[in-house]
């Protein structure tokens, strides 16, 4: 009977996922935004359902939140840049230089860190950045002072954690680049550097931007790594966590949480122009 009613079939097919998208995704976003417009009893922490813009007013008038938002965006940009710079040669080697057998091994090696727990990796970096740890001994050996816990450690840890998310899109983008283009470039007398600059990079930029969506958004929301290796620093995620977990101020936490959403929307709008969405 279903085959006679294509519309019913379509509705049944698309209904559940659309409902999921509507309720679980957009609904949650709406609930977040609505909560941000409520207020809370400072003593008991009970939410009072009265419309107010107080949370947003605090958010925009207190300097500290601007500082934290800018710091978070700065860290996200740095992590993305570090990942892009590190991932490009790895992906290039994997897709254009390595033999097929080695290529498969490298692919597994890139994916392997994703099998280990996030916390284990973050705490491993905590150990390395601690006094007498690997990083500080290495710095001391060349007569430098170890950066210790702080933003440097946070950027390094996050860049390490999200690296696979950058390598894979770039690798996929390079796979699609025909070898004949590289040969043509060489035949026309271009050196390797020239080929990379004029042929490979233009092809790979959209793939890099696609990868950056992952590294950028994952960093914007992270609060655990910075707690483990960030010393006294706090990012937007910590402010949200402190307001939910400690201060019981859900409305304010919701207001803070809208910042990354807005930043991501702006970023995605900018990214759409590069055509990176087709590379996801």
């Amino acid at each position: 009977m279903l085959h006679r009613h294509p519309r019913v079939r379509l509705a049944l097919l698309l209904g559940p996922p659309m409902l999921w998208l509507g309720v679980a995704y957009l609904g949650a976003l709406a609930a977040l935004f609505v909560t941000a417009l409520w207020t809370q009893n400072g003593f008991t922490g009970v939410i009072e359902r009265q419309w107010t813009l107080d949370s947003f007013r605090t958010l925009f008038t207190e300097d500290v939140y601007r500082t934290i938002a800018l710091r978070t965006i700065g860290v996200a940009v740095l992590v993305t840049l570090v990942d892009a710079v590190v991932a490009f040669p790895i992906a290039l080697y994997m897709s254009k230089v390595a033999r097929p057998g080695l290529r498969r091994i490298l692919l597994v090696a890139v994916l392997m860190p994703l099998w280990a727990s996030y916390l284990v990796k973050a705490y491993a970096w905590r150990g390395m950045f601690s006094e007498g740890g690997l990083v500080s001994s290495a710095f001391n050996a060349v007569g430098l002072e170890s950066p210790g816990y702080g933003l440097t450690a946070t950027v390094v840890t996050l860049a390490y954690l999200w690296l696979p998310y950058m390598i894979l899109p770039i690798y996929a983008g390079l796979e699609r680049l025909p070898n004949s283009l590289l040969e043509a470039s060489a035949d026309l007398g271009a050196r390797t550097g020239h080929t990379i600059r004029r042929v490979i990079v233009p092809v790979v930029i959209p793939a890099m931007v696609a990868g950056s969506i992952f590294t950028f958004s994952l960093t914007l929301g992270d609060y655990i790594a910075v707690r483990i290796v960030g010393g006294t620093n706090q990012l937007l995620g910590n402010v949200v966590y402190d307001n939910v977990g400690a201060a019981n101020n859900l409305p304010f936490a919701a207001a803070v949480a809208t910042i990354p959403v807005v930043v991501m929307l702006v970023y995605l709008a900018a990214v759409r122009r590069t055509g990176a969405m087709e590379n996801l």
Partner: peptide, 8 residues
């Protein structure tokens, strides 16, 4: 809004 009926 529910007019604060669940307030503290």
């Amino acid at each position: 809004t529910s007019g604060g009926d669940s307030g503290g």
